[in-house]
């Protein structure tokens, strides 16, 4: 139903856009690709062409100052630029025209006294902007699920359980070889449920970096009594300097450990991927 609505929305905007001399909107697939390629999407009105509101960026034929009228998609931690002017590096000079409203699909470029973004694409403003915002939001959620599914696909074992013990991995007597040394610890996890993979053991050892060095800051760290779902790789080869890796099961990405309440969601993703 949502796809149908979006298709109708696209058609309506297409007619309006043609009559206004603008580009027709993309197909849903095209729109989704723009969203995937963008990190900042907003409705804006072009104020000045060949213009810039950043000191480091001289005005040029490809730059325009655009008033942000409504932000449709941005990271939550990013400041609110609604009602402010931003500089847009246009894909094509002079499009959109001055005083024209458009939906801009962009990425961050310069952040100074103001911000400059680079345009991925723009389209005419749809009659139902809220519908577009919901579509983008849904796609963002889908992208998160895809990323999680990617983590699951890389894993050898997905289990739900509880940490019963933690202890440092025995070292060879050498000091830490790098500021990025992970300081490996192991958590003993009593398995309640096996979601993916096979093991006959009732408990497993999960290696985790105790280090809070920037290379390991985001990796999950475990405490006794902690419960959750682990998405585990065996003998991982994706994080840390190879010289500092150790064989074993790990959950090093922030997406590799979830509260137990997320078990149904992860089970569903595991089943979807099989």
């Amino acid at each position: 139903m949502r796809k149908l609505c979006l298709a109708m929305l696209a058609f309506t905007v297409s007619v309006v856009a043609w009559t206004a001399g603008q580009e027709p909107p993309p197909t849903t697939a095209g729109l989704d690709e723009w969203v995937r390629q963008s990190t900042y999407i907003f409705r804006g009105k072009v104020q000045r062409l060949n213009a810039s509101n950043l000191k480091v960026l001289p005005p040029a034929p490809g730059t325009a100052v655009v008033l942000v009228e409504n932000v449709l998609d941005a990271p939550r931690t990013f400041g609110d630029f609604t009602g402010k002017e931003v500089t847009v590096q246009l894909r094509e000079p002079n499009r959109p025209a001055v005083q024209e409203d458009a939906i801009f699909f962009t990425n961050g470029w310069l952040y100074g006294e103001n911000i400059a973004v680079t345009e991925v694409a723009h389209q005419a403003v749809p009659s139902n902007e809220e519908e577009l915002r919901r579509h983008i939001s849904a796609l963002r959620q889908k992208m998160v699920e895809e990323k999680l599914q990617g983590r699951i696909a890389r894993s050898t074992l997905v289990v739900a359980g509880r940490v019963t013990a933690t202890q440092p991995v025995e070292k060879d007597g050498r000091r830490a070889p790098s500021e990025h040394a992970p300081d490996w610890w192991k958590a003993t996890v009593a398995i309640d449920t096996i979601v993916k993979g096979q093991t006959t053991a009732r408990q497993i050892e999960v290696l985790f970096p105790k280090s809070t060095d920037e290379m390991w800051l985001n990796s999950p760290k475990f405490e006794v009594g902690e419960q959750g779902v682990w998405i585990l790789q065996s003998n991982q080869k994706e994080r840390g300097l190879p010289a500092l890796r150790v064989p074993g099961l790990t959950a090093l990405d922030p997406l590799d450990f979830w509260p137990t309440g997320e078990l149904p969601r992860i089970k569903k993703l595991v089943n979807t991927g099989q």
């Binding site: 990190t39 000191k55 990271p75 006294e113």
Partner: peptide
């Protein structure tokens, strides 16, 4: 960090001898 989370990272740039600064990803 890139405030818009592009998956890439910025440097600081200045064109006035360091009086003012801008991030460029």
């Amino acid at each position: 960090t890139d405030p818009l989370g592009s998956g890439n990272s910025p440097i600081y740039v200045s064109t006035d001898g360091g009086q003012t600064w801008t991030l460029n990803v």
